[in-house]
Amino acid sequence: MSLLNLSGLSVSLGGAEVVKDLALEIAAGEFVGLIGPNGAGKSTLLRAVLGSIRCEGEISMDGRRAADLSVGERARRIAYLPQDREIAWPVAVERVVALGRMPHRRPGPGDLTVADRTVVRQAMEAADVAHLEKRRATDLSGGERARVLIARALAQCAPLLMADEPTAGLDPAHQIACMRVFADLAANGSSVLACLHDLGLAARWCTRIILMARGRIVADGAPRDVLTADRLAEVYGIRAHFGEAEGGMVIQPLDLVEDVPARLR
């Protein structure tokens, strides 16, 4: 069954149509990389699904119309990692991660259950922030803070995780670790929809790539089918080196193609 189904989705921001008549279906067990140039509408698409900006068209989750679901019911179906790594107050890391359990808790006071604590612990270990649990989140480096927020999203244990540039600001080891965690989620039957700019990571780890440009989906399919030299030249205006290593695809962007201004216009 499809976890997320979009049809005829359009979003206008400040008079400009940023997402145009978009259709998309995500099934359980997929790790989808959403790629495309700046301003293609990737983040806007995620925020429209989240429900924080107005959109036209149909969004359904688990076969139910999103409009019929309360904010709380949505939160149990979709976890979201925003692009801004905002943590407003000097709260302990474990408390930030524990926020992920909020959609599963009964309203009213009361501390985390043992089961909640186990999930929080596992999420912190997966994002490699367990050793920081007592530190104040605002004292951490940008990359550490990003990992704390990844752990927070993981602790939500939603069937679908939408992550907006999850690897931005991470060192190479943690970038790979993050992709690994997402791939494991997908292998265990959850799905991940991640906006990515690193084509190499996307090609290597995602099971499916959606390429967006100017508010529309340009290509959708397996990494090898979507990431071709022609498409990279057409959409990004770049040329890249394609190779093979350890049974997977390798892409390394090399340079802008000639006549760039015309192509990007």
Partner: peptide
Amino acid sequence: LGPALDALTIGNDGARSLGVNV
């Protein structure tokens, strides 16, 4: 409003994704 304010620590969109009607 206590729990909702806790969720707002990670911003409006973050709070919304946790089920808070901002």
